[in-house]
Design a protein around this nucleic acid. Structure first.
Length: 408
RNA sequence: GUGAGCAUAGCUCAAUUGGUCAGAGCACUGGAUUGUGGAUCCAGGGGUUGAGGGUUCAAGUCCCUUUGUUCACCCCA
């Protein structure tokens, strides 16, 4: 039993998984920069108020999932549960609207939510997110999907499904919600207890209940598609047209709802099988009013976040190509040999070679074994004889061929 | 916050109905091969069976508590 362990729902990412994570991060940076996204590094902690206002007071995230504490001056601080609120804050605070429009940013790092962990869900989890400010045009939405397609392709993830929906705007959504409430209220007695609550708290959630009984009722529920205002309909139709044009396949899913309050119009999820109940790998949407609500100029925006644990879970079996840096292993006998090896190691490392030096108090045999375990390209053996003669043996490990090298 | 399963060596797992049950494989270390790896053989280290309490002549095995973990619900990436 270890005395210390990680907190619940928090884990270390250790080799060999580091390689996969590096790979994912590299691909994202490569692809995102092609689309003009600049990296933005936002803090892990913010004033609690930021998330309350951004994500929404009534949401589960704010109500029961935030890591919130008082700092030494008594201010309420929160470990970020998501990235968008911070990026919007930064956008306004740093006057990033001065950059040529549209402004595109991506970020990468850990998020924190106090939830019960399960497959694909952790209390500290990593996201790569991206946000675009200053364009309300559906072409921007389409570019996002184009970029994500490229990302998924390069990262090697197939069999994903893009599902899109429009959840309207402050003009048309209230109408929809009231028609939804009206409809479900009529069937209130037949709804599961969760849905009874949803009816009060979060009517949009009624649509994605997994309960069978509710499913039957749900079939006849009004769809948001029928309630959208002209502007939202146009936006949505143009987006679909642009997706078709680019050959990006998608499914229209009028049941997609986003959990955070700030979303408008386009909402989407990219899902994959085989990662458990949490099958959403990427999710996001448009939020045309958030910048203004945060005190900035009226600025339309759209963004998304990729769940890295979920992505890594899907790519777990992918073979990572080892970047081969050849290893020179020094098997040394005695302290004089150590001195010599250290000097030679410095030279080799300057040339970009990987060097490991054996423990001079270990037997030659065990040092050879170690070299083998490290998969050394070659071993240089230095002992008394070599020090005296100035010539050492260099053994190539794959075929055992030995040659002499000058060590002076 | 709710529900269910699991918890034995570094890892993967054994241990008939509570009765030599604390084991195996892999890994690790050493030896066979006095200064030369991978194969083989041999040997060794390592566990108060997650923790605490209880029942019993006897608990890894049954009961309670607790912690962790897995999966699902809520919700979400």
């Amino acid at each position: 039993m270890n005395k210390y362990s990680t907190l619940k729902g928090v884990c270390d990412i250790v080799p060999p998984d580091d390689k996969l994570w590096d790979f994912i991060e590299e691909i994202s940076k490569e692809v995102f920069s092609i689309y003009g996204f600049k990296n933005i590094r936002i803090p892990v902690i913010e004033y609690t108020e930021l998330f309350k206002r951004g994500i929404g007071e009534g949401t589960d995230i704010v109500e029961k999932e935030m890591y919130t504490f008082s700092d030494r001056s008594g201010r309420s601080i929160t470990l970020r549960p998501e990235g968008t609120a911070s990026v919007v804050r930064s956008y306004i605070e740093n006057n990033l609207s001065d950059l040529p429009s549209p402004q595109k940013f991506f970020y990468l790092g850990p998020m924190f939510r106090y939830e019960r962990p399960q497959k694909g869900r952790y209390r500290q989890f990593y996201q790569i997110g991206a946000e675009v400010f200053g364009s309300s045009n559906p072409s921007t939405d389409a570019e996002i999907f184009s970029m994500l397609n490229m990302f998924l392709d390069k990262v090697g993830l197939t069999n994903t499904q893009l599902q899109i929906n429009s959840i309207g705007c402050p003009i048309c959504r209230p109408n929809y919600i009231s028609s939804l409430i009206e409809f479900f209220s009529k069937h209130s007695d037949n709804l599961c207890t969760d849905c009874q609550n949803r009816l009060q708290k979060n009517p949009l959630r009624l649509l994605d209940c997994k309960n069978e009984g509710c499913g039957i009722i749900k079939k006849d529920a009004p769809l948001i598609t029928q309630s959208l205002c002209g502007e939202c309909v146009n936006h949505h139709n143009q987006l679909k047209h642009l997706l078709d044009l680019q050959g990006i396949s998608f499914i229209e899913n009028p049941l997609i709802v986003r959990g955070l309050d700030y979303y408008t119009k386009t909402a989407f999820e990219i899902t994959a099988d085989h990662i458990g109940a949490q099958n959403t790998v990427i999710a996001g949407g448009r939020y045309d009013n958030l910048v203004h609500e945060f005190g900035g100029a009226k600025t339309p925006a759209i963004g998304f976040a990729i769940g890295l644990e979920r992505l890594a879970l899907l790519l777990k079996d992918k073979e990572m190509i080892d970047k081969k840096v050849p290893l020179i292993y020094f098997a040394i006998l005695g302290d004089k040999a150590l001195d010599k090896a250290l000097l030679m190691a410095k030279k080799y490392r300057k040339e970009g070679l990987w060097v490991e030096i054996g423990n001079p108090s270990d037997s030659l045999k065990s040092q050879m074994k170690k070299a083998d375990k490290f998969n050394a390209e070659s071993v240089i053996i230095i002992g008394e004889n070599e020090i005296n003669s100035g010539i050492a043996i260099k053994k190539r490990m794959n075929d055992g061929v030995q040659e002499e090298v000058n060590i002076n």
